[in-house]
Amino acid sequence: MIENSTSNALVELKDLNVKFVSREATVSAVNNVSLTLKAGEVLCIIGESGSGKSVSMRALMRLLPERRTKITGEISVAGKNVLELQGKELSDLRGGTVSMIFQEPMTALDPVYRVGDQIAEAVCRHEGCDREMGLERALELLELVKVPSAERRLKAYPHELSGGLRQRVMIAMALSCRPKLLLADEPTTALDATVQIQVLILLRKLQREMGMGMIFVTHDLGVAAEIADRVAVMYAGRIVETGTVQEVLGDPRHPYTRGMLASTVHGNMRGKDIEAIPGNPPDLRRLPTGCSFAPRCKDVTASCSEALPPEVFMGGGRMSRCLLASAPPDEPKSMAPAI
């Protein structure tokens, strides 16, 4: 309630930390992440494998195993303090206000239930209708996500569908209760290239029609360029740079973002994965005290590894966590081709 009065943001993360605690080690998967998402906005999170993208998404819905996970900070979604929700309130939020689409359509559906029933179950759970009405709605949803011969597909089991169709079923299920926020964790990565584009176009269309906020996780800068309003770049569990998609991809202010972009040819970003920047990301069990990108950074200075660089705000929601971020705006541009 207090959160609601301070802003009209759909999602507000403040100083989010996620640690996995086990007997051997504590893994700091997400560190001091703060971000906001307005209603109807699309935010892309990009970053290397293991940078904590999925963990952040799951934290937003409290899907991480409670016993081994320590979440601190603030998560507010549609005015609700997610970290304080219990039992029924939490499950009302899941699938009702926030939905998630997962990376692997092959394993994300229950193999022994018909897909129609799986969608209907979500509908009935949140709208309190009977199975028949749920199935009617499921049919509408399958038609909405353009599943051919939807009536027949309603009775299909997941193994009888192709990867693309399964992902459409997942999308239908996620949209079944008209969520305000859709979390899409690499929803197209596991699909064939042509199917990827179809699913992507569908998702963007539905997002606009339904006016949902969306956080879209991807490795693919081309996808980000196409779908995002804003971009957040994650490295070692931290957001190192955010801004509008034009700002971040056109004028990167963090050496890590520049490194990623350097590997993609101008104007042909689609389908390009983030290519390897020399070196490896740091061990999340023992994060360095300074900038975690310093060991791989081309522009590293002595002060980089002394203390964690502060967030440098450059107006208009633009942020970079780099000591050199406030350098003259034309400098990074001239550097980009040189890398």
Binding site: G95, F102, D110, R125
Partner: peptide, 9 residues
Amino acid sequence: ETLRAKGLV
């Protein structure tokens, strides 16, 4: 996880 994400108790 999908089941939980869609709000099942």
